[in-house]
């Protein structure tokens, strides 16, 4: 079933368009990876889905309902969570408070969800009283993902989850992403680390210069010579 559909979206800052008629489809339970060179508009795509940028053209629908141009605090209520690439935790607040803020819009008792997030990231349970600003890069990334997961989102948008992490931590974060996906959360992942991102993707999209270049299953893109030569480093 198609969950999130981005159709022919054109978006930009002031005069210059960053994305031109980009189309991405996410089916339920899927990991969709978006790869491409720097400046291809990958992060812009996520910001547009989440309402931080307003598209000039095109439609974004969640379960066939329009969410185009809604404010972020409305979109999050529709069941989409977003983890930005940088400054993605409340660094002066404790881990527990960060997760509580993730559940800000929930009116019900979310203590069970909190336990589930702690089960997913046990290290956060041990340190729940510590300030997020004092954590290592990998742990911060877990706090950021945990915050986004507090809402039980239908779709999770991850912007460069491996950026800035030491190589030994990168595989750990991708492992966690697989675990999160296994709980049924669909996601769009934007990544520089194209090989890893495509390995776990059900479907992958290649963007360049703000346009769709290729899309196929993750495996097929990994096997594609052109993708290998241009984006996977040989």
């Amino acid at each position: 079933m198609i969950l999130l559909k981005i159709e022919d979206v054109t978006v930009g800052y002031t005069e210059i368009d960053i994305l031109h008629n980009v189309t991405v489809t996410v089916r339920s339970g899927e990991i969709v990876s978006v790869i491409g060179p720097n400046g291809a508009g990958k992060s812009t795509l996520l910001k547009t889905v989440f309402g931080i940028l307003k598209p000039r053209n095109g439609n974004i629908t969640l379960k066939e309902k329009h969410i185009t141009g809604l404010r972020p605090d409305r979109i999050v209520r529709k069941g989409i969570s977003y983890v930005p690439q940088v400054e993605n935790v409340f660094s002066s607040m404790t881990i527990q408070e960060n997760l509580e803020m993730g559940a800000f819009i929930r009116r019900d008792d979310y203590s069970q969800r909190l336990e589930e997030v702690f089960d997913l990231f046990p290290v956060l349970r041990e340190r729940k009283k510590q300030k997020a600003g004092h954590l290592s890069g990998g742990q911060r990334q877990m706090v950021a993902m945990g915050r986004a997961l507090m809402l039980d989102p239908q779709v999770l948008l991850l912007d460069e989850p491996s950026a800035g992490l030491a190589p030994v931590l990168v595989s750990g974060i991708f492992e966690k992403i697989r675990e999160v996906n296994a709980t049924g959360v669909a996601m769009i992942i934007v990544e520089q680390n194209a090989k890893e991102a495509l390995k776990m993707a059900h479907h992958g999209y290649v963007l360049a210069m703000g346009r769709n270049v290729l899309d196929d299953t993750g495996e097929a893109l990994l096997a594609n010579d052109e993708v290998g030569r241009l984006y996977l480093g040989g």
């Binding site: 931080i52 605090d73 999050v76 935790v89 819009i105």
Partner: peptide, 11 residues
């Protein structure tokens, strides 16, 4: 602490 992240969290 972080106004953009607060907005993203639905605040």
């Amino acid at each position: 602490d972080n106004m953009e992240l607060a907005l993203i969290s639905g605040i």
